[in-house]
Amino acid sequence: MRATFALRNAARTPLIRFVGKRSVPQSVDHTPRVHPAAPTSSLPDSFAAYREKAQQHGPLGRAQFTGTIGGTPGASLGPVRPEPGQFFDRAELPARFGRLPWSQAEIEAIETGGASLFA
C-alpha cells in the first residue's frame, strides 16, 4: 500500500472548529489615536515632523550633526591599533594558536561521512 499517495489524495479537514456564524462588525473606527503608553499625549502633525524628532540608532533626519555619532568620517579618527596582547585577526596570533593542517585521513572521513573509518 502506498500511504503517501493515499494521504496526498485525502480531503483536508481543518483541526480548528469555529463556533457560530462569521460576523463582520458593521462599523469600525479607524481614526488614529495615541497609544496609551506613548510618551506624549498628542499625535504628530505629519510623518516628516515625526521623523525630524525620531531616533533609532542615531538621528533619522538628513541634516549633518556635528559632535555626535556619525558627524565625522571614521578616517578622521586616525589609525586604530590593538593594545598589547590583543589581536584583530587570527593570523596575527602566535603559531601555537594557528590552524592545524588537515590530514588525508580526516579529509577522507569527512568526504565519506565517516564510512571510511570503519571500512
Rank of each mutant, 00 (worst) to 15 (best):
M1V: 08
M1D: 11
M1T: 07
T4M: 04
T4H: 07
F5A: 11
F5S: 07
A6D: 05
A6Q: 07
L7G: 15
N9Q: 09
N9D: 12
A11G: 07
T13N: 05
T13R: 06
T13D: 04
P14S: 12
P14L: 12
L15C: 09
I16D: 02
I16T: 09
R17E: 12
F18S: 05
F18I: 15
V19M: 07
G20Q: 02
G20N: 04
G20A: 06
K21R: 14
R22A: 12
S23N: 12
V24H: 09
P25T: 05
S27T: 14
V28E: 14
T31K: 13
T31C: 10
P32S: 08
P32Y: 03
R33I: 14
H35W: 02
H35C: 09
H35I: 04
A37V: 09
A37K: 07
A37T: 15
S41M: 03
S42Q: 13
D45P: 00
S46Q: 02
F47P: 00
F47N: 04
A49K: 10
Y50N: 04
R51M: 14
R51S: 13
R51V: 15
R51W: 09
E52V: 00
K53C: 10
G58Y: 00
P59C: 10
P59K: 01
P59E: 01
L60P: 00
R62M: 04
R62L: 09
A63Y: 01
Q64G: 01
F65S: 06
G67K: 06
T68C: 11
T68D: 11
I69T: 14
T72E: 15
P73G: 08
P73H: 06
A75E: 15
A75R: 13
S76H: 06
G78Q: 07
G78W: 14
P79V: 06
P79W: 01
V80D: 11
V80H: 08
V80E: 11
V80W: 08
V80L: 12
V80N: 06
R81E: 14
P82H: 04
E83M: 08
P84I: 13
F87Y: 15
R90H: 03
R90V: 06
R90M: 05
A91K: 15
A91R: 14
P94K: 04
A95V: 15
A95K: 05
A95E: 11
A95T: 14
F97W: 14
R99H: 07
R99A: 10
L100W: 03
L100A: 13
P101V: 01
S103T: 15
S103P: 00
Q104M: 09
A105F: 09
E106Q: 13
E106R: 02
A109V: 00
A109P: 01
I110H: 02
I110E: 06
I110S: 01
E111Q: 07
E111S: 03
G113S: 03
G114V: 00
A115I: 03
S116K: 04
L117S: 03
L117I: 05
A119L: 06
